[in-house]
Write a protein that binds this DNA or RNA. Structure first.
Lengths: 210, 210
DNA sequence: ATCTTTATGTGAATCGTGTAACATTTTCAA
DNA sequence: TTGAAAATGTTACACGATTCACATAAAGAT
């Protein structure tokens, strides 16, 4: 499955869950198209490739669709994440409650500041970086969010790979590049650069496309 | 200019600034390619389309390149942004200092909680939502970051458009769609959905592509 | 029963983008 | 002065993804 398609399918999945809670039972291609911001043709094409079939004229049954897509997306178990770098942004993410509905749970934080990692008021345990490998091994975590300062990002990235964390969401302005590890694993890295994103917005406002 | 290309060009721009501070004067296509995580052919092609020309065998002069790309990207004046929703994430962004080097400044926050908007310890003034239009007009802001809870996102979006803010970076899990306004302006909306991003990482780990 | 409407599903056409190959130009060296 | 090496710049190509068009099937209406 393509990357763009993956995003769309995940959006379909979310939209379907919302529609189900409202009480709907059937859904049409153009509904999902609206929800995901694409055309109905794309939805049908996606489903065609995924071998998902609806009823002609009747649309798709939401319940079936959810379980079908859920399987494709590998849903099921709760997925565990750690936050490395518990400054303001890191703490904000640790407090963020919106992940739960996606089956994602933040299980630990890491920071080198004793004032942070020994603070019992945190809702989630925070450990010093020296315990990274130990905790990651014990909790079987393989995805981490990096919210350390720019200067520490590269080192942190290396330590995470060393500890066996192969999924990374990086909020630092440094662009981290995936490089196959010694044990032949290609890490998955998503770089989210807020400054870059804002710059793009300014550019698009200044030079509108259409 | 393409969206992907815009990202690359912005990356080139950043890399160039870093290289200049180090003291370099010339740069080659493959240097920038490394910095932006693409191939050298892409860099040359980008420059070709932008009508940026280097010296054969000599590469590109960094100073020229920076001013050239700066013009293309519309750099120059400092760009002002507001943060709407001053919860944990909003406050974290208001404190974040990494924007300055990009010429971006957060000039105000908005929140409906009096405990927040009357707190003088904030580094940046926070106003109640009722003063949105007034402040936006006075400060001539046209880009906002939305960090309100999911339930308030749609309303906030409408209020921002109403106030004349046409560039939006949305951190709420609701996907906001750009719709041409009454005065014929097409807003620029970037939805950043952290949960979605994490889900993608889990998927890619579970079903590796290569 | 037949006709119309509605929506799916798929094959073909189109569009855009990255890649690769190569010609071109410059520099350096012998 | 000639040749080799290094880097640019452009053209052609291949691939993928989206859109279009249309066949197909079901439901409802008259």
């Amino acid at each position: 499955m393509n990357n763009d398609m993956l995003i769309r399918v995940t959006r379909y999945y979310r939209a379907l869950n919302r529609l189900r809670t409202i009480g709907l039972e059937k859904v049409f291609a153009h509904n999902l198209a609206d929800a995901a911001g694409v055309s109905a043709a794309v939805v049908r094409k996606d489903f065609s490739q995924l071998e998902i079939h609806g009823q002609k004229r009747g649309g798709y049954e939401i319940t079936d669709l959810i379980s079908r897509i859920g399987t494709i997306l590998g849903k099921g178990d709760e997925q565990h994440v750690i936050v490395v770098g518990c400054g303001r942004i890191g703490k904000a993410l640790m407090h963020y409650s919106g992940f739960e509905s996606d089956g994602i749970r933040i299980v630990a934080g890491f920071d080198n500041d004793p004032l942070v990692y020994s603070d019992p008021s945190q809702p989630i345990p925070v450990y010093p970086m020296s315990r990274l490998e130990e905790v990651v091994g014990a909790l079987k975590v393989d995805v981490a969010i990096i919210t350390v300062p720019e200067s520490a990002a590269t080192d942190t990235y290396a330590q995470l790979l060393e500890a066996g964390v192969t999924g990374i969401m990086n909020f630092s302005p440094v662009t981290l590049k995936p490089v196959r590890t010694a044990d032949g694993i290609m890490p998955v890295v998503h770089n989210i650069n807020i400054g870059l994103e804002l710059e793009q917005i300014f550019y698009e406002l200044k030079f509108p496309r259409s």
